[in-house]
Design a protein around this nucleic acid. Structure first.
Lengths: 194, 194, 194, 194
DNA sequence: CATGAATGAGAGTTCATTCAT
DNA sequence: AATGAATGAACTCTCATTCAT
């Protein structure tokens, strides 16, 4: 029982990973079920054993990434440290995701052109949950006078927007390592908040 | 000759405008030639008199938007004023475009999923030209000590990234007017640069 | 205008006729758009220029047959003659349709497995209209004492049911001509009514 | 041996019953092996242990129903009573089947769209056997002058045709009970024969 | 015996593209 | 200069069937 359920879960994850990869190379529309399957040496028919349809598959891609990312952010928040320190860590995490799992994050950015009403809502909710973690730390930082801004919501959007943009230009063979980028971004972002 | 050429040019522009509109409501893939034509009370067959194919049409959409935007930015640069003032104006312009002509900007963001190698290059060049105008003012500002940052390229990317993100969440019926947004963004962005 | 509209109408009818033919040889599910098109030396894609989808095409098949048949029945009713005579003619007409246009009548028999709710209703309405013409004459005949039955509705159903069954066994090379069949059926059916 | 064979036989019957049920709710094509299996809490793979393929399964459904119905008819024939009485009973039986086991009868009506040549023949034979029982009683009745018709074959077809039609319109919540219907039909049918 | 998983052929549908008129 | 009509390739999805375990 447990074994076979785990097996099926593992397979689903494999498919999701493949889907994420293809979708990001080609975009949602051009990513065909055939290609997603081929990546795993399966045939497209098999995908429908695990997922109801293409939309469902892509939907679960979203879920997976966001749940993972939220968990990781939460850990930074739970650590006893200043809000500035917390935010630094969160920024680093976000950048890491945005670059290394670029594929996944891309899908989160424009769900409205991809999903039907039914599935759009849960995604937006999770997205808000994610963003809310940043809000939470920013607001806490304002209370402790670590940050001094009037528009915390907009500041958060600047944060996320600028970081999401990284994948547009980041080149692993460029002159900056990821660690350097994380450092610089954290510094510059904190300039906005202070 | 000249007359008929102008007529053709006019028609081309009409089509481009229609295309831009549809593409942005639905995304590149879901925007059909039929719908683009219908908007102008034409039939899709006719579009092929003016454009080689769909990719060509969309390509020219890009060109048009970027050329316009570049021109506008250039005007701000040409005015005699401090670099900070210049940048403020450019930021306002960019936000205006990103919101009001959101449709057009969207296409510029992820050209690689849309275009074939042939057409990708010219687009990237124009995009760099656009970004270069920001670089130019930032560097000038560093020289005059108006700005004090070590990583002007990254700063510029933060600028553009955060502004491009606005269209993800901007709601015309939200609590902030465009003018307020422009103001706040300009303020916060300058905090980064100083 | 009128010309091109007529042309398109003609084409639609051609397609409908082809559809009716194939559907009846193979049944709704096994009748493929490809085969319907091939019959007319077209490709399946072309069908979608004329009909929204398969269901729509088949739906229009129904409409066409029923409208034709209703018209023909109506003509017999309009003639000045005894109700018995009217009914005889109507029976002959129905049998003719059921045999010669067997293909079309078959589809009318079990619409519920074929159509979605939306299209089912109009079909049932037309079917009732058709049946209603028989009711009308039967009731008139009862009033004039030509017929003497207590259950006119059931009698009508016996009429139609037995006639629809003909196509199950009718063989053009069998021992009875259509005319003979029409005669015998009319005689036997009137025995029920008297 | 015998035990396990009986077990298998029992299972086969269960599957057939499930198949009959599903086939009639949805029609042959839309009845999937999966659903037929699910009804019995099995998986579709298992069905192939008992039946060669879908066609074979459906074929055996036919056999089962017809054999049952033939047996029942035969019993009425064996009873010592007038041919009119025999026929009355047979009509009642047929109507009962056509309504209560409507599912099964439906499949018998249009076998040619379902079966390949191989399996078509045995089915048609059984169908003829079934119809033959009616012929037998009708002919006997003509000999004893209970019935007075010239075309017994056609009369039989009218009988069966009109009764098969009942399922098209019968509604369990309608104004007539099955018993009433049986009565009325028997009366009207005998009017044809006399 | 039963199943879980995979397959592959084929269905309906969409749409960019073509071309005679 | 425009269009109506046709095309065909590509896509998503379904399902009977197979087979190792």
């Amino acid at each position: 029982m447990k074994l076979s359920e785990k097996k099926i879960q593992k397979k689903k994850e494999d498919i999701i990973l493949s889907a994420v990869k293809i979708v990001n190379e080609k975009g949602y529309q051009k990513a065909t079920m055939e290609e997603i399957a081929a990546e795993l040496l399966m045939t497209k028919g098999s995908l429908y054993y695990y997922f109801k349809n293409k939309e469902d598959l892509i939907f679960q891609c979203h879920e997976m990434v966001l749940v993972q990312a939220i968990e990781e952010l939460q850990q930074h928040i739970n650590v006893k440290q200043s809000n500035e320190e917390k935010l630094r860590e969160m920024i680093k995490t976000h950048i890491q995701y945005a670059i290394e799992k670029k594929e996944m994050f891309n899908m989160i950015i424009k769900p409205d052109q991809t999903f039907s009403e039914d599935q759009l809502n849960p995604i937006l909710l999770k997205r808000n949950e994610y963003a809310g973690l940043f809000d939470q730390v920013i607001l806490a930082g304002i209370k402790t006078a670590e940050f001094t801004i009037d528009e915390p919501k907009i500041a958060r959007m600047i944060l996320l927007g600028s970081m999401n943009w990284i994948q547009q230009w980041y080149n692993p063979f460029g002159s900056k390592t990821i660690e350097e980028l994380q450092q610089i971004y954290a510094d510059y972002m904190l300039k906005v908040l202070k």
